[in-house]
Design a protein around this nucleic acid. Sequence first.
RNA 1: GGUCCUGUAGCCGAGUGGUUAGGCACCGGUCUGCAAAACCGUCUACAGCGGUUCGAAUCCGCUCGGGACCUCCA
Length: 491
Amino acid sequence: MNQQPLFVYNTLSRKKELFEPIKPPFVGMYVCGPTVYGDPHLGHARPAITFDLIFRYLTLLGYKVRYVRNITDVGHLENDADQGEDKIAKKARIEQLEPMEVAQYYIDRYHFSMDKLNVRRPSIEPRASGHIIEQIEIVQKIIDAGFGYESNGSIYFDMVKYNKTHHYGKLSGRVLDDLLVSTRELDGQEEKRNPADFALWKKASPEHIMRWNSPWSIGFPGWHLECTAMSAKYLGETFDIHGGGMDLLFPHHESEICQSEIAHGKGPAKYWIHNNMITINGQKMGKSLGNFINLYEFFEGSHALLTQAYSPMTIRFFILQAHYRSTVDFSNEALQAAEKGMKKLLVAQEILPKLTSSPTSSEDVKGLEKKLYEAMNDDFNSPIAIAHLFEAVRIINLVNDGKATISIEDLELLKTLFSDFVTDVLGLKAEDSTSASNDVLDGVMQIVIDLRNQAKQNKDWATADKIRNELNALNVLLKDTKDGSEWRIGE
RNA sequence: GGUCCUGUAGCCGAGUGGUUAGGCACCGGUCUGCAAAACCGUCUACAGCGGUUCGAAUCCGCUCGGGACCUCCA
């Protein structure tokens, strides 16, 4: 385990801070998960992979991480946080399904895609609909404290009152007075004392099918409430890391802070970490823009913007090649470059166990180890870590070609580094187990290679090339070396 | 309009006030029957204009461009 200090960028302070868990070696991390009313798309992959990286790296460092990522299956409304139809209920109405049928269907689709991307499942994946009681309790606490008021059966958070005693906007930098001026007019605003107030509990209209009993009305919880309730339940009232996409910074996370400050008397998280967005041709993916590509389409290449299919690992590598706080612009060229680079890395990892050691090393593996930890300790800088891993790739290939030597200690260290960083932290793995060893296939390939070698000895290049080309067409690659021909499956 | 981020070579993408990021592509070389792979090497950069400094792509200002949030979106 590495003992160098870890620095993380905290959105609260807008700078990198030394990471010190509240109760080491335990780390509590809460990340806002998907609202399950549609297929997971590239935008869902970014936070999932970002916080998977953080989860995995903290684990490598020896922390005992409890990672909670919720599923929003109620309360997230169309058009406005306080108005409009519930997203899941709307889908259910359109497709004539139970709301929970819709949620389950898309949860399964989400899990399938995340598993493909080799995103580790969180420690706990709570659903908002399963925590209505906890949410009602928080609303009651806020009312009791005098910061929630009832209006026509709905409960709202009194922002103006809050701002007098607390610092509203500490996370997003928003100023309440500006919001009061710029908030646009919406239906139903007359229930609120102030347009900036947000809903804690909404009374259900007659057609609203997802509804629960509460002290105030039959209704449903406000969107921001679930994260406050579930994070406190599983991680405590103040925990280490709260994560999510930058688009959630305002108003969602800002509102969470308000709720937590009143209900618990303190902010929910010590470190706030936000991943940036993915853009397509320089523009954010968005429903209204109609330019978002779902992950199934990526895996199959079935979208007009895609010139080919991209494997889950390619997408993962592509995302990790940029720092999580930068926007990543999607393009076929960038994805193809990522695909090739990743294969180079993974092929080197396959070669690694076959290397032989020498009495001395001509390459600096220990320096590499230091650089890898330094990169990750600097706010999880995966692109730098990957750049250093390509240095390791060069060493592996040099040793494999007999152009460099490596000691037994360095070889073992190199294996450890690949296992720790490529497999465990970056979560990269070879795809398509079709290349898994298979005695029959090995035997057949040996026969084919022997036949081709005979042709080569007879200088029958036509036959030798024919065999190689046709194997190529089957995605079997031949590589002629001094010691004979090697083969592997894959481009 | 308000708040904030950003502009790096053909493409993608790191970065520090003074020393090669890295990947993909291109070109040349080694190797090979020819390839592929690998390795070696070359070549394209820091939006523009000022300022601070011995020195700035890196700090400051302005201009131009791109983006995010303020509405649902990860």
